[in-house]
Nucleic acid binder design. Structure first.
Lengths: 130, 130
DNA sequence: TTGATAAAAGTAACCATTACTGATAATGGT
DNA sequence: ACCATTATCAGTAATGGTTACTTTTATCAA
């Protein structure tokens, strides 16, 4: 993997954020520093860095992928109203009922994806008393 | 909501299955009975029925939506090798660590989506000793 | 039976993502 | 330092699932 200015800036902007931007959100940020960069370059580098384990790619609900510069194993909570995604510190524990269910289905369990859905602080306020 | 032959057949074919077809898989099935039905009609009716609470729409990983005629609250396990999706009986329990994390993030929790990932029985066999 | 209109078929548009096509530039060997 | 190799780039076209549009058909209350 060669060292390029584009990849450098993409990674810098991503790790600078504590949000979980989509590819085009990141593209808009990166373009402030590299106005001639193309969207394809952003996608390609996000893909390369994901496959190298440098960043996380989140396949949360919705049509777009999200990216996360934080490589630690953590969960996410998504606001169903505004789409915002935040980190969660919760450590998922596999319950007995879950282990039994996996066994019952005849599957070999590899991973468990948990996504919390709710209203973010800002949207709780806006939603008011509903 | 009017009663139409198309919607009837779509629902029949979906509830007949215990798998979790994508829209185009269902389209291929329905076409055997209604050869002139269009893909758009399948999408429209799946959407209508989902919004009416008649069926479930699963936004699991990958690019396609999956549909489920079983309206009961249950979890799913997806085979990472062949894409097959099966039901899981496990009842998700919210752990203390999870409740604390939600509170810490300032969110109002609405739901929790869990997806189990693994190898289905057929793929465990094929995968052999790996 | 009929008029209003929901829903159909067929087709075009949409949008995130991926693939392609020369041009450019990072890297390793001489 | 130079050159050859080739990863990567910018720009653009293609892909694929889904949605929207347009015209026609069919359901259903009056």
């Amino acid at each position: 993997m060669r060292k390029t200015r584009q990849r450098e800036v993409i990674r810098e902007e991503l790790t600078k954020l504590d949000s979980h931007p989509s590819a085009d959100e990141l593209y808009r940020l990166v373009r402030k520093r590299l106005p001639r960069i193309s969207l394809g370059t952003v996608y390609r580098n996000l893909d390369v860095m994901f496959r190298e384990g440098m960043i996380q790619r989140l396949d949360v609900g919705g049509s777009q992928m999200r990216f996360d510069g934080d490589r630690s194993d953590h969960q996410h909570i998504r606001c169903v109203r505004c789409g915002r995604i935040d980190d969660m510190e919760a450590l998922p524990e596999l319950t007995k009922s879950e282990r039994d269910a996996v066994k019952g289905a005849g599957y070999r369990l590899l991973a468990r994806r948990i996504e919390f859905l709710g209203l973010c602080p800002a949207c709780v306020k806006k939603a008011g008393r509903h």
